[in-house]
């Protein structure tokens, strides 16, 4: 077992495989996590959207070529919502792992920390893709039927949005000291990001209500994750959203790697962790 060979690219692929495998095992073990990840958007789709379709008409707005039902409009936002919650769930599990000590197994691996965190991120995205496609399959039976190739075209968009939201979760996990503090994430990250976005209503409707709110929504990276998925599902590319999602994803990941680097970030400075 030559250490030099173990630390080469094959070793890294094994580490990536191991991290994805463990994340998958945890996901399979926590069936309620899968169910809650599905139930949340389905409640929005079946109940919230049904109520709103009567009061909220969606006129022609790109990428849709005609008037669409509210259920159709809201579906890409709900896909992004699944990924947002999944990113925060991964963040929660990082904090939990740090509290229980399991995190050290990961951090004392001989591979570079940036690689380990990226692998952890990739594992989280893989899990979120399963959830999103399960949701899209159910939505299809509810009459949300994007073009068949849209499901394929949405994959890279979902990967990118999942990476951005997962990287944000990683960054948040580096700043949270205890599991009890995590409730704040719900109030200060998830809800504002979701509601101040184009997930539930088009931005032009926001502009009618409040130009300031419209600008906030337009600056919200979550809006761009939603639009990237929405356009991809209808076989188009929203270049601005693509650039924002890529840029924010890289920035969040770089900040998370910095925060987890013992020589630079916050983890090693804050005193003993278990």
């Amino acid at each position: 077992m030559n250490p030099e060979r173990r630390l080469g690219w094959r070793g890294r692929m094994r580490a990536l495989e191991g991290i994805v495998w463990r994340e998958g095992l945890r996901f399979l073990r926590q069936r309620e996590r899968f169910l809650s990840a599905l139930v949340r958007p389905l409640v929005w789709l079946f109940i919230f959207a049904a109520g709103f379709r009567a009061v909220l008409g969606i006129s022609i707005t790109p990428p849709y070529e005609t008037y669409v039902l509210y259920e159709v409009y809201v579906t890409p936002g709900l896909c992004a919502m699944i990924q947002l919650f999944n990113g925060m769930q991964s963040s929660l599990s990082m904090v939990y792992d740090r509290e229980t000590g399991a995190m050290r197994t990961l951090l004392v691996s001989p591979f570079p920390r940036w690689f380990l965190l990226s692998a952890k991120l990739a594992a989280g995205v893989a899990v979120s893709l399963l959830q999103v496609y399960a949701f899209l399959a159910i939505a299809w039976f509810w009459g949300v039927e994007p073009p068949p190739w849209g499901y394929v075209a949405a994959l890279p968009a979902l990967v990118l949005s999942g990476l951005m939201l997962g990287a944000l979760g990683l960054l948040i996990s580096s700043t949270i000291r205890q599991l009890e503090n995590f409730a704040g994430v719900m109030n200060f990250v998830i809800f504002p990001m979701f509601f101040a976005s184009s997930a539930l209503y088009p931005l032009w409707r926001m502009a009618e209500a409040s130009p300031l709110l419209h600008d906030i929504c337009a600056l919200n990276p979550f809006t761009h994750a939603v639009e990237l998925i929405r356009f991809a599902l209808y076989l188009e590319v929203n270049w601005l959203s693509l650039a924002v999602v890529l840029g924010c994803g890289l920035a969040f990941l770089a900040a998370a790697i910095y925060a987890y680097d013992p020589s630079k970030g916050m983890i090693g400075r804050r005193g003993p962790t278990r």
Binding site: M1, R5, R6, L7, G8, R10, G11, R12, R14, A15, E17, G18, I19, W21, R22, T105, L106, S109, P110, F111, L116
Partner: peptide, 9 residues
């Protein structure tokens, strides 16, 4: 198995 993967075995 998880630990082994993290060490590239």
């Amino acid at each position: 198995a998880y630990h082994a993967a993290l060490h590239g075995l």
